[in-house]
Amino acid sequence: MNVSYLYSLLAVIVLGLIAYAGAVVGLEALFGIVIPYLAVLVFFVGFVNKVLDWAKAPVPFRITTTCGQQKTLDWIKPSPIDNPTTTVGVIIRMLLEILLFRSLFRNTRVEFKGEKISYKWVLWLWLFAIMFHYSFFVVVIRHLRFFVEPVPFFISALETVDGMLQIGLPGLFISGATLLGGATLLLLRRILLPKINYISRAADYFPLFLIIGIALTGILMRYFIKVDVVKVKELTMGLASFHPGIPEDGVSALFYVHLFFVSLLVAYIPFSKLMHMGGIFLSPTRNLANNNRMKRHINPWNPKVKIHTYEEYEEDFREKMKEADIPVEKE
């Protein structure tokens, strides 16, 4: 069994301890100001660079993966979304991919059952992924309250919905729990399913542990250790307004661990598989219409190639062609 996840786990623990120790020995400014700024900078530069790099490369061929009936004869019903021919179709296809993970929804699992091979529809991965990504999204939106004053109504509204279970005090946010749950399930999947374990590497475990670390420290701060939220907001507002400062008589060191993890994650995105958040928009098998035979696609570097012309061909075979009564150009 591949236990490489232990290294990633260890790395995240060590990183957390560093931040904790840093905050304790008075390096709050480093972990509370310098690193977050740097991280955001690295993120923007890295992200933009990567996307520009992708965009720079041309799309020489329209290589749509078609997952439904093509549009041909009037009386055959086409699949306008899974095999789009129009821009609207493509947009809907992309929205379904991005918002609902359409392709993952198709997932099956192969099983040899006696003489028969079966391909059972399995939704676990889809479910975990949806749970994880949407929780993450809600958590991020919720956290915007730390960077704007006054807090816009939609954030408060979201919090009301997110906290509707009304468990505990302060009220439990569902998204926090499902983020931790989703990340943990995705992690367990990687550790326990032999095939997934086999293909998983440090780069798969590291961001999961990091996110679990973020969720755990966040939950600890909100429900158990209860950091001073007003102080925290003072710090984050300082960052957002470019008047950074470290609040007097400190925010708990745990907060700096949380912030450090977030900074790491943000800075890590452009250099890792987490760029899938951008890549999904540009995948040529999904974002192109299958209208190749209707509308010519242009390849900007369409090369000139040496072809074997008919004339050369006839040169090779003229006598044989004549003998067989096949018409020729030159007698």
Partner: peptide
């Protein structure tokens, strides 16, 4: 020359 190659090299999350 191929955006497809770049995207396919960069975005796989090894979800399996």
């Amino acid at each position: 020359k191929y955006r497809s190659l770049k995207i396919f090299m960069d975005t796989c999350v090894r979800c399996g």
